[in-house]
Design a binder for these strands. Structure first.
Length: 98
DNA sequence: AATATGACGACTA
DNA sequence: GTAGTCGCCATAT
């Protein structure tokens, strides 16, 4: 299982799709949820198949949204009512799925 | 086979 | 709070 298996991809995408609006999850959280590889591979899955899921609800462990799409993620998150800290970091304390 | 890179995370200065 | 570094695993060259 060196390459990104469909099974792994489906597992990650399924979890992301289960994240409701106004909530977020982290790469590391997803990586532990699937119990395989590492947070980087989760990011790889997003880069490859993230176009099929609300990728903007997947943020870093620090609460910062994905660095891609030039900051489009922040706008989407704010529009969904995600709690922000300092106006640019997601309040994981409240928005993180648990 | 070796090196560099990445939609990451954690640690240290 | 910011910057630098290392560790992690898979991919590209």
């Amino acid at each position: 299982m060196t390459a990104v298996d469909e099974e792994y991809v489906e597992a990650v995408l399924a979890l992301v799709e289960q994240v409701p609006p106004g909530r977020v999850t982290t790469y590391g959280d997803l990586a532990r949820a699937v119990g395989s590889a590492g947070p980087r591979q989760v990011g790889r899955v997003m880069a490859l198949h993230g176009d099929a899921v609300p990728w903007w609800r997947v943020v870093h462990a620090d609460g910062r949204p994905a660095t891609c799409h030039g900051g489009t993620a922040v706008d989407r998150l704010r529009a969904e009512g995600v709690a922000f800290v300092d106006g640019r970091r997601v309040d994981l304390t409240a928005a993180r799925v648990g």
